[in-house]
Structures are given as C-alpha cells and as structure tokens.
Amino acid sequence: MVKLILGSTLVDDSFVTVESLEQAANLPDVIVPLTVFVAHKAQWLARSGKLGVWLAAGDDAEVLAEDLEHLSVVAIDFPSFTDGRGYSTARLLREKYHYRGQVRAVGDVFRDVMFYLARCGFNAFVVRASDTPENALLGLNTFSESYQSGVDKPAPLYRRRLA
C-alpha cells in the first residue's frame, strides 16, 4: 500500500486510482480522472465506497463545483513541479468552492515544494519515487512564518502583527 502524507503524518492510502468503472468494481475507495467521472457521473456517485476525482494541471475545478459534497478526495496532478497551476486550483477549491475534503497533491511532489502546497490548501501528499515521505515531511516546516494570506492562515502577517 502506498504511503500518504495526511496533514503531517504518514498513513496507508486506502485509495486506488482507476480508469474505468470495471476497474473499480471490487475496490472500496477509488480516484478517477475528471473526464471518466464526468462521462458516467451518476454511476460513480451511486457506488458505495469513497470517491475521489483526479484533476490534470490544466483542469478547471469549476466543473466539479456541484459534485464536491460527494467527493472525499480531489487529487491535483503536478506533471512537473515547475507547473504551478495546481496551486491556484487548490486555493479555488478551498476558498471559492469551500471544499472541506482531502485535497491531494500527486505527481512531482517532493520536500522542496511541500511548504507552498500546504499553504495553498493541500492536506495530503503522495511523494514522488525519488524522494521519501519522511524527507518530504521536513519540507512542511521550512518557514516558521509567512507574509501573505493563505488557506492555512487567511489573515496575512500584517493583520496578525496587529493582534
């Protein structure tokens, strides 16, 4: 079973990523690509296990706006860590659509991007093969303070300095 960073702890991941309803047949918790989900939305939502949707870097979270309450996970892919679109997607999920479930970073995820990911509302991380989850966890504590508004701390430093 794949190790997942959830919050700041390591857990076993119960989710399996699948490409079709058939593949999902005997699995409890699955994550499916957005297009597959949209094509058979009713069947996917009728399943008994937990459901997640996998977004590519360029996918628009708005497509999921009506379905978010039924989703346990939204996974956002980073094909390369230098493609920063997923950061905005996560913030929109949290701040515009008020999604409270798991937002999971997948793809090119390693120690040196963890801090930014967490600030943008990611709370689960599948670390890439060339890094280890234990090492990646160190990245969450790179900085002890941040200037801007983020999902983790909506009040920017200048409001907290006043408090």
Binding site: G84, C120, S146, Y147, Q148, G150
Partner: peptide, 13 residues
C-alpha cells in the same frame, strides 16, 4: 516585497 516573498501560489508562474 513582503506580499511577493514566498507567495505560495505564484512561485511557479
């Protein structure tokens, strides 16, 4: 400067 320093959303534009 402070806003842009380590802005988490806009580090990989």
């Amino acid at each position: 400067r402070q806003w842009s320093t380590f802005h988490p959303e806009f580090a990989y534009l």
